[in-house]
Design a binder for these strands. Structure first.
Length: 549
RNA sequence: GGCCCUAUGGUCAAGAGGCCUAAGACACCGCCCUUUCACGGCGGUAACACGAGUUCGAAUCUCGUUAGGGUCACCA
């Protein structure tokens, strides 16, 4: 077989040689143990929770080892491409604080190993494909989609494995003259790998997460270059990760099924294999079944969901860390205020089985994240969120920032901070009673407090309320007043003889709370009243009283 | 269906042959604290898929079964 002629026929254009590329993209000069990782999303206009999961692993692995983290765009599939998708990806990287060392950013590409868009690397793949043709390891295939479809049907009928292999690899040994003829006719062709694999034999790798993985050798003559000259994932992955000198490939376990293809290709091209880390999937319960989180069916699969709902990116990251590394939670309890980046991440601690997304747990994590934030930080984040998603809230927050911050500061910052908020869309309701335009009172009093006592308290309190009192004095006044209306003056006193009192100071406070806040649950009432100011407090008492007539 | 991966409470998981009478977290339930709530404290319910084998000894190693998941494209 005249491979020289075949290659010239298939690649008439001027191409650099693989040797040249080897010198253009030399091995990296990095300290021992430094890892090169890369995130390689396709620009489909959708960022999945799983994408972020992988990106966090990549980022931690690289930066924890003093290595490099690359963002490469796998835009080889024109059909799935969506305008603005790359912007979405870089935006997400920004939101989640995933800093890359080279690749694609919102400001363009940078780095010595580019281009980082695969479409722009077409000539590189072709150079390597040509090399394979020259060595008899690849060949052109002129089958149409219909041909392949027919073949698949036949294979199905015969209960044989589908695919292009063995006797079904019909163009594998096509005569060069015939190839010349077909190319002259302008017939499109793909470049296929000439597999020498024997499926009765196995190959194995030592996966960084899953340990030893054994798979049968591949015998499929899979496609390297599509008819438009753009590579498939398989070929692009091998060429790029070699040329970019990736040392650890982190990817989802759905790639395990074609791992043997990749192993074969690395060998055929004479490349050193990177390490592989195959991550398990995020799952979701669907009825009584478990399945991979699906971007079509599950809103929470999309990162955009968290943004829209108002979950802080830190919460999503923190939750993902609890899933990614099993010892993270213990570490967090021991180091409540430490930045995420100081957690000693390890691939060895990664879960091998699929993880169910747990909304309850996620909410809890998010509450803790928000509880750790300062009022100032919360204010900033909520305002940013509201600007995009809730104009009414945004107006309220920005009309008087200091007022809003004071509200958000209640119960915050101490040893046992309040954990009311799991996401920003809960903020509006949480603080609504501080704003007349948002106030929607529900004046339901606890059943056990007599109606006449309620009215009496509401009538009297305006006169004894003194905003100058500190918290202790304030409560003292309430206790004293409680005694005057036949309530106990302390909880203790009440509990000792509940029959002798019609209520206790807690009841008095509750009446005031319902009137002032329009609800039975609120943060510390004294703080609320201080922030509102006496005018609003008195007005609320009156409104509540009026509503009872 | 072939191939591959996986299997500890409802969920996330600790566990590397004896330290397991199986940790911790979320959720749930009870009690305590408390001006309500949110916290916090204390306690509780709840698990090694099944069957063989190896071993003095198995959640842990091997094999099988079952179940779940993934994948079988000129998508990634």
């Amino acid at each position: 077989m005249d491979y020289q002629r075949l290659a010239a026929l298939m690649f008439p254009q001027e191409l650099k040689t693989p040797e040249e590329y080897e010198t253009i993209f030399p091995p990296r000069n990095l300290p021992e143990g430094a890892k090169i990782t890369r995130m390689a999303p396709s620009p489909t206009g959708f960022m999945h929770l799983g994408n972020l999961f992988g990106a966090i692993v990549d980022e931690r692995l690289a930066h924890q080892s003093g290595g490099k983290f690359i963002l490469r765009i796998e835009d080889t599939d024109l059909k799935r491409q969506v305008p603005g998708a790359v912007e979405l990806i870089t935006k997400v990287f920004g939101q989640y604080g995933l800093n890359i060392d080279e690749g694609v950013t919102s400001q363009g590409e940078f780095g010595e190993y580019g281009p980082y868009y695969q479409r722009q690397r077409a000539a590189i793949y072709q150079a390597y494909a040509k090399k394979l043709v020259l060595e008899g390891k690849a060949y052109p295939c002129f089958c149409t989609e219909e041909d392949l479809e027919q073949m698949r049907n036949l294979q199905e009928q015969r209960h044989e494995n589908p695919g292009y292999y063995g006797e079904y690899a019909v163009h594998r040994d096509m005569d060069v003259d015939q190839v010349a003829q077909l190319i002259a006719e302008g017939r499109p062709f793909v470049v296929r790998f000439r597999s020498q694999g024997d499926p009765d034999k196995t190959v194995s790798i030592d996966d960084q997460i899953k340990g030893k993985i054994v798979v049968p050798e591949n015998n499929q003559d899979f496609v390297l270059l599509k008819s438009d000259g753009i590579p498939t994932y398989h070929f692009a992955h091998v060429v790029d990760d070699h040329l970019m000198r990736t040392s650890v490939v982190v990817r989802g376990e759905e790639w395990l099924s074609t791992l043997s293809w990749h192993i074969q290709l690395f060998g055929a091209l004479g490349f050193k294999m990177p390490k592989f880390a195959h991550t398990s999937h995020m799952m979701k319960v669907d009825g009584d079944k478990k399945r991979k989180l699906s971007k079509r069916k599950d809103p929470e699969a999309s990162l955009d969901y968290y943004r829209t709902e108002g979950y802080p990116p830190e919460s999503v990251k923190e939750y993902l860390m609890t899933v990614i590394n099993s010892n993270f939670e213990d570490w967090r309890i021991a180091n409540p205020d430490a930045p995420l980046e100081t957690f000693p991440f390890s691939l060895k601690k990664m879960s091998v089985s699929g993880t169910l997304f747990d909304m309850d747990k996620f909410r809890d994590v998010s509450k803790n994240v928000i509880a750790r934030m300062s009022a100032e930080q919360v204010y900033q984040a909520v305002t940013d969120w509201a600007q995009e998603f809730d104009a009414e809230l945004y107006d309220a927050l920005t009309a008087d920032p200091e007022y809003a911050k004071a509200i958000l500061a209640i119960g915050r910052g101490g040893k046992k901070p309040r954990k009311d908020l799991a996401l920003w869309s809960e903020v509006k309701d949480y603080m609504s009673f501080f704003y007349p335009q948002l106030f929607k009172p529900n004046y339901t009093m606890p059943q056990h407090i007599a109606a006449e006592d309620v009215q009496r308290i509401l009538r009297d309190y305006g006169a004894i309320y003194n905003p100058a009192e500190d918290m202790q004095e304030w409560f003292g006044t309430i206790c004293k007043y409680s005694g005057e209306i036949g309530f106990a003056t302390s909880t203790k006193e009440y509990k000792a003889a509940p029959d002798q009192f019609r209520g206790n100071p807690g009841d008095t406070t509750m009446v005031l709370r319902v009137a002032v806040c329009g609800r039975q649950n609120s943060p510390d009432l004294y703080s609320c009243m201080q922030i509102m100011g006496s005018d609003m407090v008195k007005e609320r008492l009156q409104s509540c009283l009026n509503s009872m007539k």
